[in-house]
């Protein structure tokens, strides 16, 4: 096993099938502690499935996933999901105020979030405290994504999973969210696994990159592989050429 002390999540020969259709095939690799790893690849490559496996929303059909040194199935699901947070592309928002949305992780644990704590959460993601009692559904896409990130951070996760969180945003909002994630990574040393379709963004933010193509890990390593890889499939993907 090639696992090191720096490994936050380790995949070993992970396969995933639905109704006999292979979604992920023999994935082996590490996500490193405190680093940002981007997951790139064409639509349908299995990126979101892989991401959701990291907080046990899906389980492998075969193979093993280690969180730190522990097999993922040995960790109680609720405990794991507090440790491994996730923010999704559409930033699902619950009916109610921004405060109620941010407080959701505490509400689920029958804990109270104080107004002061909530304001601090908003400031942490660059939202004005005036938003606290506004209807969350009325916010813009970028603001909803910030609320979603603030909500995920309330559990103080050690690992944060991001599923195309900027793809539906305008360039200004996307840049703000990108800077926010970099800040969270640097200030709190949160391990980030980030699915993005934007190759430039992957190069900009990622310490490491996994390139998934057709359910297989085509290559992983330093983000420079996105420009320097000799792998023809990766070159085709980064140039936007469809696989035959």
């Amino acid at each position: 096993m090639t696992q090191t002390n720096q490994t936050a999540i380790y995949f070993e020969n992970v396969c995933y099938e639905i109704d006999g259709i292979s979604i992920l095939n023999n994935i082996t690799g590490s996500f490193y502690k405190g680093k940002i790893t981007t997951l790139v690849g064409p639509s349908g490559a299995g990126k979101s499935t892989l991401l959701k496996m990291c907080n046990n929303l899906h389980s492998p059909t075969s193979g093993e996933i280690l969180i730190g040194s522990l097999p993922i199935e040995s960790i109680e699901p609720s405990t794991l999901r507090k440790k491994v947070g996730i923010a999704l592309q559409n930033a699902p928002i619950m009916k109610g105020t921004v405060f109620e949305n941010i407080a959701l992780p505490y509400t689920l644990q029958q804990k109270k979030l104080s107004e002061k704590e909530a304001i601090s959460c908003l400031e942490n993601v660059g939202l004005n405290p005036d938003f606290l009692y506004r209807s969350a559904e009325d916010l813009s896409g970028g603001q909803k994504q910030k609320v979603s990130i603030a909500r995920s951070l309330l559990n103080q996760p050690e690992i944060l999973l991001l599923d195309e969180i900027t793809s539906a945003l305008d360039p200004t909002s996307a840049k703000e969210i990108e800077e926010l994630i970099l800040k969270i990574n640097q200030q709190h040393e949160v391990t980030i696994i980030w699915i993005t379709h934007n190759i430039e963004q992957a190069k900009r933010v990622g310490d490491y990159t996994w390139v998934l193509i057709n359910g297989q890990l085509a290559e992983s390593g330093n983000s420079t592989i996105l420009t320097e890889s000799k792998n023809q499939r990766i070159q085709q993907f980064t140039k936007g050429v469809k696989e035959q």
């Binding site: 507090k82 999704l88 699902p92 689920l108 559990n155």
Partner: peptide, 16 residues
């Protein structure tokens, strides 16, 4: 489905 998965992903129970 998204909201249900959201609650699970935040550590909520199936009943929640």
């Amino acid at each position: 489905r998204e909201q249900i998965e959201l609650i699970l992903s935040l550590g909520g129970t199936p009943k929640q």
